[in-house]
Amino acid sequence: MAKARKVPAIIDNPMSFCPGCGHGIVIRLIAECLEELEQDQNLIFALGVGCSSLLGGGLVTDRLHCPHGRASAVATGMKRVQPENTIVAYQGDGDAYSIGIAETINAAYRNENFTMVAINNTNYGMTGGQMSWTTMPGQVTTTSPLGRDCEITGNPLKFPELVASQFDVAFAARGAVTSPKNINKLKKYIKNGLEAQINGEGYSVIEVLSPCPTNWKLSPLNSMKRIEEELIPYYPLGVFKERKEN
């Protein structure tokens, strides 16, 4: 018998993301995990600025739109003041890794006990597709019209690998939304991250390779293909820091 499937109540609303955007899939996975862990009524979202802010329109739960890039700092405060609540920082790559890299790294460095989900679509989506730290070499954006030149801009940032190798965090992983198989794996990563927080193990980060059909100027299907062919070879999927045995 097939498994019954229903969008969790806290996000069962029309969302204003572009057609084929991966945000909708990721937020559904987070809400499913929260429901399964019985945390969906015990939760505060710290929302980044950018397309991640659009989540606020459809979400029926406590949330705060944080200053640009500073969701990890706000989530730190939330968790320290309300330790019994589950805190999820939901940010994009431009927000978490470029504008707010200091706050993001400091939260990981201190092993703050919350979960960050970072949507990596290799550009600043909402503002029209500018280059971010995760933009691929040679990728054309509105601020790299000739393609990203890594000689002068540095190389794309691999945040989960960075925190897993340098800091004492609880869990770090990267998933993608390109296929049902990858989506199911991603759900396991998100659940592990949330469980790490609930158990008080510390900071967990799950990065998601997600399509941006509008700014990549590709169809939704070709955007997924670009992730498979171009992004995953550079940004490998998997767990970079396993949870310690409980």
């Binding site: 019954a4 499937r5 229903k6 609303n13 969302m15 945000h23 909708g24 559904r28 049902p180 989506i183």
Partner: peptide, 25 residues
């Protein structure tokens, strides 16, 4: 099978048993 539900970014699909939705088998 629910793969459409899994892939859909916009919550278009719902699959239910005998009019009851959500949960496991």
């Amino acid at each position: 099978c629910g793969i459409c539900y899994t892939m859909c970014p916009d919550g278009v699909y719902e699959i239910s048993h005998n009019g009851e939705s959500g949960g496991e088998d």
